[in-house]
Design a protein around this nucleic acid. Structure first.
Lengths: 153, 153
DNA sequence: CCTATTTCAGTGTTACTGAGATCG
DNA sequence: CCGATCTCAGTATCACTGAAATAG
């Protein structure tokens, strides 16, 4: 019988060094940290993204909000329903274009965004804990270049 | 009417600079590149990971293979069924422990792994295209530190 | 006519959970 | 009796698709 009782088995080395693998591991860790942290505040990532979009760009239609936050139109509807039920956003018809709703963040929504922002900052801190401040800046720059190359393709 | 006809709307800046956001974008790009490339070879990421594990560690039980490749026990079953149907792996009962199957990679499986390995290397190249060789090495080192910190927690 | 917006219902993928059967 | 393995069935999540209703 081979020693398969060990609690950890290392992955194939040809996987371990590949950026695609490392990114998927980093994403898994990042997602877990975020989901756990949001859950404590009774929220989800979509809620944070939508509130942040409303705070930064002001009252918006659902379609433009979806484009800015990269959330699908269907999921925007569902997430805004939840935010509206909690009184964090307000829906009103756009008098200038009656296909649209104008979504506005409420004072309670701004408070919640503040809370979620602190949660998100705490997650960045835990995620980058192994890196020095200088390395964090380098890491963010390199990641940004990889991601922006995607956008410009 | 606001100029919402633009094809791109930028995300909230408080999101754009956060490592968690950048990582999720990088992962989205990486996944898309991998999935598209694997599809051309009639394969999926699970297939590559399982074949790579078998090639590196030799004949293995499904449980240890799952631990090494970070694939859930249920998904290992399904993916190995597909690989066995294609003749890329072989299942045989373990005479020393009759709960186990011994999974072996076949010559056809080794050929397929070779093909998939080239595909995966091509994806790394496209993903890191915007970085110089030096920056690629730095990027991989930083990512590795972030991910290993996770493993040691 | 065609396009844009909002909404609902449903799909597909990935990762996971629970439970049963077998075995050490 | 407990724990490990393999398997199947089902769930949760996220991103997305299709289609209808309304409006520019």
């Amino acid at each position: 019988m081979k020693p398969e009782h060990a609690t950890v088995d290392s992955a194939p080395s040809r996987m371990l060094k590949k950026p695609t693998w490392l990114i998927s591991r980093a994403f898994a860790r990042s997602s877990r940290l975020l989901a756990d942290a949001f859950e404590g505040a009774g929220a989800r990532g979509y809620h944070y993204r939508l509130l942040a979009g409303l705070d930064e760009f002001g009252p918006s239609s659902q379609a433009s909000l979806g484009r800015r936050t990269s959330i699908d139109r269907s999921d925007v509807v569902a997430a805004l329903n939840e935010l509206a039920d909690q009184g964090l956003v307000h829906r009103s018809p756009d008098p200038d274009d009656r296909r649209r709703n104008i979504i506005t963040i409420t004072p309670a929504g701004i408070d919640q965004l503040q809370t979620l922002e602190e949660i998100v900052l705490g997650v960045q801190e835990r995620l980058l804990a192994p890196l020095s401040p200088t390395d964090r800046t380098r890491f963010i720059r390199l990641l940004t270049r990889v991601v922006e190359h995607d956008a410009h393709q």
